[in-house]
Design a protein around this nucleic acid. Structure first.
Lengths: 236, 236
DNA sequence: TAGTGGTCTAGACCACCAC
DNA sequence: TGGTGGTCTAGACCACTAG
């Protein structure tokens, strides 16, 4: 284990154990240089990593301080449905239920239309695992940003998988909720009052919206897992 | 803007724009040193940050390569229920429905019991916003790791809020799913077939389990939001 | 074996900011 | 104005690994 990793782990331990409490100032860099018998660059690397992880705050002239508390954030893996099904050992297939190219802007996506060019591609499809309904999906794609999407056959390629590979995004927002199947019950093979998990997702590339999607999963047998790995478990 | 930040942003731009595609080798450190006219440490800092963010993979002897694709991870904020309610402008209150100290180990939590000492504190409580049911919660706390929890009055202090402040954790796993209210319907003021969002959560401190909790929210008016901020938006 | 990334050093200059 | 963190340099040694 490298020296800066050990220094970082050591300081982290003192914070997590409560030896250094939120608001406490930790030793100056030059003091840690003496304590660990290394150069300032090495101490700086350890402290910069702790600051990036949010465990300490650093201020010029005054020093470094233990941050107030863990922000309770977790890394949530948003599944690609085809991968999800195949990982479970199922055979994936997709049904394109509807496809519509819109010139106007009446959907979820905020698109500034370009005269004479299509603005939004609206899709509705159903994902199946071994022929059984797994999820239904409503999607809008910004054709101004992603014109090539109009030529893709989404009866073969799942739109989410195609976008994942072909259109890098820089920002995304996911909203997770629950509701009864309602009007989608027949598509999912459920009763209208069956509970479903709903995942809504918006992505942007450099501020421009790329896609909006709402995916509806039967509650039975589907869940999202978010895992937070503390700093001590991070690779070095 | 610092030099290593500009180098990092520049390489990031070339990757996101598609100029450098997944699998491509990016220039060696010593080549970037020439290109940017700086020292190797500076280039190394930029590339290390890109590797930590998952945008490139680095291998000794062979170089650095553009990673295959964005891993679709999102930062999910797990809400503290009291804060969540108060943020919405509601008045928070809690009802402790049951409390049980267990010597054995029959629950969700894997605790190695210590003879003569209690192992698990089991709690059931209801969270209310302006007197209306907001969520029900089943929780287990590891009393071997957190003995002081036995003395806390959880009819006053919500267990989640107490733990957040008093017991730092290093690892957490959250599982999000949906189901019908079922047996919890009366506690939530719902019909048995009403859809609910279920958040299950486990935390550890240095490998030792701290708590397990299952929170059940009425689907109506509750959702979790996870936001991913691309690297270009990260502070330097 | 040669070339890469991983790490560390000893020193330097600068921006910032409490005093 | 002095001391802090932010950054950068020029060089070094090492571990790892493809050829």
């Amino acid at each position: 284990m490298s020296l800066h990793s050990r220094i970082r782990a050591d300081i982290e331990r003192r914070i997590l154990s409560g030896e250094w409490k939120p608001g406490d100032r930790i030793p100056f860099e030059h003091e840690l240089v003496v304590e660990y018998g290394c150069s300032r660059m090495t101490v700086n690397k350890a402290l910069s990593a702790l600051a990036a992880a949010g465990l300490i705050n650093r201020r010029r002239r005054t020093g470094s301080f233990v941050a107030q508390q863990h922000v309770d954030m977790a890394a949530l893996a948003i599944p690609d449905i085809r991968e999800e099904i195949e990982t479970r050992g199922g055979t994936y297939s997709i049904e394109l239920l509807s496809r519509k190219v819109g010139l106007s802007n009446g959907g979820q996506l905020q698109v500034s239309p370009v005269p004479g060019r299509p603005a939004i591609l609206g899709l509705s499809c159903r994902h199946l695992s071994d022929g059984m309904p797994f999820a239904v999906e409503y999607r809008e794609i910004n054709l101004v940003q992603v014109p090539e999407a109009e030529e893709v056959d989404f009866a073969v390629t799942p739109p989410g998988s195609w976008l994942l590979v072909n259109v890098p995004w820089t920002e995304a927002e996911n909203r997770i909720s629950a509701r009864a199947a309602g009007g989608d019950c027949r598509k999912l093979g459920l009763q209208p009052d069956a509970a479903c998990l709903v995942l809504e997702r918006r992505t942007w590339r450099s501020g421009a919206p790329i896609t909006f999607v709402r995916q509806i999963f039967p509650a039975q047998g589907f869940s999202l897992v978010a895992r937070f790995i503390g700093m001590s478990a991070q690779p070095d």
